[in-house]
Amino acid sequence: MGGGFSRSDASLKLERGSLRNADDAGVEASQDSDESLMARFCDGELPAFEKLFQRYGRPIRAYLTRLVGPSPAEDLAQATFLSVVRARGRFDRKARFRPWLYTIATNAARDYFRRHREELTADGELPSEASDPDGSPVSRDDGLERAVQNALAQLPEGQRLAIVMHRFQNLSFAEIGQALDLSESAVKVRAHRGYKRLRELLEGVWKSG
């Protein structure tokens, strides 16, 4: 009886231990969420910012390279994180971090082109850069790469931003809506039109593929 008790006691302890471990893992995961890292950074923790930078440094640089090209992208990526540091008091702790970060990066790209007006399109929109996001020589199908980049460049800014964020940065439509200050359905319409237009522009590539 006693042995039975101690066995069940031991197994209970073990279960509790596993539960605690599971809880700890959950707590750790939630502590490592973007929002919790940002909250900790707002409270003055530098390591929390370092984690965010390591998580998003490269994706933001790649995103900006697609918008402005490789050489200004490096500076703009740094300006994006500098803005995170300087404007952390403007971050709404109930909001998602990733859309906020992409809003800042998009604003940085828009500002870059506003100051280099000759590079804006006739409609005053962001032009698209036909370059590899890593700035390295294109190693795969060069023709396809270029055709797709050119087709992307021909899309209106709203459609291009929706597609770049959705396809390359893996943002959900809801996150893109938050980043561009649009409703989710408006983003879906833009993405739908953009993908459709891309298909029309890539007619030849499709046929040859």
Partner: peptide
């Protein structure tokens, strides 16, 4: 049409997605 466009963009992503060690935080930010 939309699925095809999405697939065509995949070729772009593979070139861009080379994984490299996370960058250190620039001194200016610190």
């Amino acid at each position: 049409q939309i699925q095809r466009s999405y697939e065509l963009l995949r070729s772009q992503r593979q070139v861009a997605g080379a994984e490299v060690a996370p960058p250190p935080v620039p001194e200016r930010l610190i």
